[in-house]
Nucleic acid binder design. Structure first.
Lengths: 230, 230, 230, 230
DNA sequence: CATGAATGAGCTTTCATTCAT
DNA sequence: CATGAATGAAAGCTCATTCAT
């Protein structure tokens, strides 16, 4: 469920639902359909603007079903937050890193994060919505500490790199993680106001590529051993 | 109207309104009061959640006045976006930088941005809202290109620093500006979800101080001349 | 569904709803009640003046139900137009005419139309409203071409009368129909301004009787074979 | 002020405003402009839909002026009703009839009425609106009995025709007037619903011409001496 | 497991009108 | 003679949610 370190333990399947009846299957399908629609509609219209009606119609279901499966609108949004983190984690877990090459690993991590944000704007949007609501729902979501594992991986990379003498020893994994996330997130999240100000379309492929290169080089500079101290 | 470079030309007073009648004064007060209330309420409840009723009541005025002065709710929000940018700019213009000391200047710019975001959460929140609406309103706002002047200042600092041999010549001001903004903005904007994940309260003074130091040192590392290239 | 020609085929029951549950019955009652109230309120206050609130209250229901059953106010008005035409048609279909007596048939048709307008002022009023709105709703209503069948009957009467030598052959049924409708409609529709001008109350029974006689005699003169041509 | 009978007494100028100051002129212009705008807007949007705001803007004036000149919205509508009757009368007064040719005179009267309705749809529309409001405003308007003079003229024509032996003696002028008005008015007023039903565009020139011919011939048949009675 | 019916509160906006200058 | 400011009521409509089958 996290950045995989060359050991594909794909066996982990906690919530294994064995042998579902046809009705249970249909029920799960309805639930999944509502959840998928909710992600789309909430990302598009916001939490207030995304009405249960819009969602149930997008899912080709009925309002009532949302209450049936998620209790109420808030419960649905909690499930949405859970789901998008789960998806992020699943994607993250498919990242294959070679700890023997920490520089390359770090580059890959940066690339993964920046591109995930770019390719999943609903993830960014929904996190923004949640922060606008002061993190009210995330506390009610039930998931194991995902992000910390991501930080753990960065920590491992940092440690390996430091041992190899290519990285500075003083850096905290948390800071580096936040730095990468910030540089990727901000670019995506604020692309509309930024584009207006910079007079430049940040959604263009070239702009993104340039930014990605900048972030990678900045991150590498950040972890480089202090030359004046050596 | 921008980062002031040691030349306090505070005299500029463009739209000087001379001799207002008592009615005109009251009218301006009503408008200003509505705008102030709108900033507060929109930041608190969002664009959908911040009803014209809540706003007009917070301003001790009436719904109708919003339509009188701003046309409609959207016009009010456009005015809000304009206003918060104006405020940011006014604050920015009070920053006094000594170009002879580019390192210190850069440090001050970073500090200013990070602390402005921290001390004006409504600025961050409202920009998020605007981005959630795909920058729909900012295009309708009428203001001179603010951010580019900010970038201009950074550009000057970078050039001065490069001439003095303390900065790398290859860095683009735009990238550096975005980097600083991203690191400051993300910390503030995503503090709720981040706090949940890191298991750490990012609103604590110590957490902020630590992050500020990290950002300053990272920025300085980023602009440092490439030692291997020297 | 039209002027019945002595063949009472009252059996026709197309949309037979068999065995309704108690809920479904109540639902239909709610819908019907809203529609009835809408006819009354729209006729009384006009389309703008007849608020959904007034209507729902008159129907002892709730605003929301109008949107539930009719989509919006406009949809409700479309349903109203449909309904009043349907009612007119039902009444029309009960008219029993003897084609062997075309003179008497024509007289009966004139009487029916004039008296229907008089006894159903809401029909006239609502048609006026619709024309004030340039026929915007009638296009959205779904009904089989009613009026043309009415014209068809007049056509039959005219043909029969012409064959019997009592009617002129040159008259178009459409023109005769419009003439009768015009004479009946105008009297009812414009009775307020007319009364003011003529200084005479057109709502008095005697005034109506006199007008009815005038219309009948005029119609008969109109269809009479041209004496100079005989 | 009425159907002129070959005696152009154009001298009648009651409300002669002699020598206006420049301010008084401007004031009258404002008033006239508002009135003109009101006719247009009321005809277009109805009494409820035609807001004082729309009207004052269309007149390039201000809401307040409506209250200044007409007291309130109702007063404005009363003035509108007055104005359109006045206009109709002015047009009517320009009709030149030769009483020595009653047949031709009648034809001309029919033509005048039908064409006036066609060319001044706002007249028809506004009368409809007034009738929808049960003639509430017309009573408050101050004008001399216009329509009765029209009837008077028809009466003269009828008398002359009867004396000449070409018209029936039994016809009442009022009935004939109402008949002509009805046939012209209904065609114009109900053209939208009629067009929908007849499947024929009544606004086409050819349709109007045909109807005009029908009305003229019908009117002539109506006043023809009863051949069986002669 | 799913659905149509119902509810009451809330939303943005427009309205006719009056006030103060 | 004209204007900007202000007001309170009401409009059409959407909302999240619950009820009864």
């Amino acid at each position: 469920m996290t950045l995989m370190i060359l050991s594909p333990n794909g066996s982990a399947q906690d919530d294994s639902p064995r042998k579902l009846g046809v009705r249970e299957k249909a029920a799960l399908a309805t639930r999944a359909s509502l959840l998928r629609a909710a992600i789309k509609i909430f990302a598009q219209y916001g939490l207030d603007g995304g009405s249960v009606d819009k969602i149930s119609k997008a899912a080709k279901s009925h309002d009532r079903m949302i209450y049936y499966y998620f209790g109420n609108k808030e419960g649905l949004f909690v499930a949405v937050i859970e789901e998008i983190y789960k998806r992020f984690n699943v994607a993250e877990s498919k990242l294959k890193l070679d700890l023997l090459d920490p520089l390359r690993s770090l580059e890959k991590i940066v690339q993964f994060i920046l591109r995930y944000y770019r390719d999943h704007p609903e993830f960014v949007t929904l996190l923004n919505i949640e922060n606008l609501h002061k993190g009210k729902h995330i506390g009610k979501a039930s998931f194991r500490d995902y992000s910390s594992t991501a930080i753990g991986v960065i920590d491992q990379v940092l440690t390996t790199g430091a041992q190899a003498g290519v990285f500075s020893k003083q850096l905290k994994a948390r800071d580096l993680y936040m730095m990468i996330a910030a540089l990727g997130y901000f670019y995506q999240s604020n692309r509309y106001t930024l584009s207006a100000f910079l007079g430049e379309n940040l959604e263009a492929q070239s702009a993104f590529d340039q930014w990605e290169n900048f972030v990678i080089s900045t991150v590498l500079k950040t972890i480089a051993p202090d030359s004046s101290n050596s």
